[in-house]
């Protein structure tokens, strides 16, 4: 998804002059199209994630939308306090882009496994999580965040997805996109790049269930989602993240202390 993200961002930045891209000395053979086209709106902070995030806050506080592009845990855990104090508290339009969701960089070892990032990012009150499951959702999520700049976390699959056909449809926080039509009461709900795994599981264990994806969610989305999911009898969630603090537990929290009886099972 990395290359499509950069391609789209470069395209959008033609019109939107207040978009900046920052990296922490990575993105070789990926970020070049943006750098080439907008050299004055591209910065490499060097290997300094905390400084990069602070600078992104400063730059965005001057009426700019800043995209910070990095890998796995570097733009999240490494600079968690800058995100909390400088970006989220000031409600600044910084989009943190982390490539290598879940075990995308599995072979690189534990330091590069992004399996706890939702847990961190979803506790920030203003932070919106964008976790597209395919190229189509990526383009739509990007479109949403460009039109609604705010603190946001865009989590990308490392691998390029071959699917190229882009269907125009408006998505928004909490929107459930139907991927496979099936049972109207029992569904599988995914977020992020686990749709292929979900289809396998559907054919094996959950035959006849409908399959949905929710690419945009977050702390503020809980209220809307509660109403959306109450019509389902059973929801199976699938994500590439630990149960603790993940998408499934977020969904369970939305119906805590309510009369909603939807059964939620985590995968």
């Amino acid at each position: 998804m990395r290359k499509i993200f950069i391609k789209e961002l470069t395209k959008i930045s033609n019109k939107r002059k207040n978009i900046y891209l920052m990296i922490n000395d990575l993105g070789y053979n990926v970020i070049e199209p943006f750098k080439k086209k907008f050299p004055k709106r591209f910065f490499n902070s060097g290997v300094s994630e905390q400084n990069m995030m602070g600078m992104a806050a400063g730059l965005s506080s001057e009426k700019n939308h800043v995209f910070v592009y990095s890998i796995a845990n570097f733009p999240t855990f490494r600079c968690a306090e800058q995100i909390r104090n400088d970006i989220d508290y000031h409600n600044l339009p910084v989009t943190i882009v982390a490539v290598g969701s879940g075990l995308g960089y599995g072979h690189l070892g534990y330091t590069h496994h992004a399996l706890q990032d939702y847990a961190l990012m979803r506790i920030f009150p203003n932070m919106l999580i964008l976790s597209p499951g395919n190229n189509n959702e990526l383009v739509q999520s990007l479109d949403f965040i460009i039109k609604n700049p705010q603190p946001s976390y865009l989590r990308l699959d490392k691998d390029e997805n071959k699917e190229t056909k882009i269907i125009k449809q408006r998505i928004f926080p909490g929107k459930m996109i139907k991927l496979i039509n099936g049972n109207s009461k029992k569904i599988i709900l995914t977020t992020g790049s686990v749709q292929k795994i979900a289809i396998k599981l559907l054919n094996k264990k959950y035959k006849g269930y409908s399959l949905f994806s929710m690419p945009i969610w977050g702390n503020k989305t809980k209220m809307n989602v509660k109403n959306l999911i109450k019509k389902y009898q059973e929801i199976i969630t699938i994500e590439d993240h630990f149960y603790d603090g993940g998408f499934g537990s977020w969904l369970q929290e939305t119906i805590n202390n309510t009369s909603i009886k939807t059964k939620i099972t985590l995968h």
């Binding site: 910065f43 602070g54 506080s61 104090n85």
Partner: peptide, 29 residues
């Protein structure tokens, strides 16, 4: 920053200079 005239909230040390650099960068370019 909720106080009129205060441009940025701080309190955890080491945050102010990166933020100032981000602002200066914008004005410079």
């Amino acid at each position: 920053h909720k106080v009129k005239g205060v441009e940025f909230s701080t309190g955890s040390l080491g945050h102010g200079l990166p933020i100032a650099v981000g602002k200066a960068l914008k004005f410079k370019i």
